[in-house]
Amino acid sequence: ATNIVGKVKWYNSTKNFGFIEQDNGGKDVFVHKSAVDAAGLHSLEEGQDVIFDLEEKQGKAYAVNLRIK
């Protein structure tokens, strides 16, 4: 899925991951530091509006192509 809109539920910059809540009511999506770095960001803030693509690997969904809304 592409261009999914959501809000950062939480992001832990020490542990380098967090979760994004989808605006469409879907399951929360894992986001890793690598996606944050690829977006040219240092971190994510709770409540921040983002747009992302959804990829699945080994049955787990995660956010890629992250951008600030």
Rank of each mutant, 00 (worst) to 15 (best):
F19P: 00
H42T: 12
V64Y: 07
F52H: 02
I4A: 09
A1R: 06
F30A: 02
V36G: 02
H42F: 13
K60G: 08
T2A: 11
L66K: 00
I20V: 07
T14Q: 10
G18Y: 02
E55W: 12
D28H: 07
H32D: 05
N3D: 15
S43Q: 09
V64H: 09
L41Y: 14
E45L: 12
D53F: 03
G59I: 06
V31N: 00
Q58I: 10
G26Q: 10
I4M: 14
F17N: 02
D49P: 15
A1Q: 09
G40K: 10
K57Y: 14
A61V: 13
W10T: 04
Q58S: 08
K60L: 08
R67F: 10
K15D: 05
K27E: 06
E45I: 15
N65Q: 07
G26N: 11
E21W: 14
I4W: 06
L41R: 09
G6Y: 01
V36M: 08
G40E: 08
F30R: 02
V64M: 09
S43M: 12
A39C: 03
A38V: 10
N16E: 08
Y11W: 10
D53N: 07
N3H: 08
F17P: 00
E21I: 15
Y62N: 09
A61Y: 11
F19C: 03
S43P: 09
Q48G: 06
W10K: 05
D53H: 04
W10Q: 03
A39N: 05
R67G: 05
K9A: 06
I20Y: 00
A39W: 03
G25Y: 09
A39T: 08
R67K: 10
V8S: 01
K15G: 05
V5E: 06
R67D: 05
F17V: 03
I68S: 12
K69T: 05
I51W: 14
E55A: 13
Y11K: 01
S43V: 13
F19T: 02
L54M: 11
D49G: 15
F17C: 03
D23L: 15
T2I: 14
Y11M: 03
Y11L: 03
F30W: 05
G47T: 05
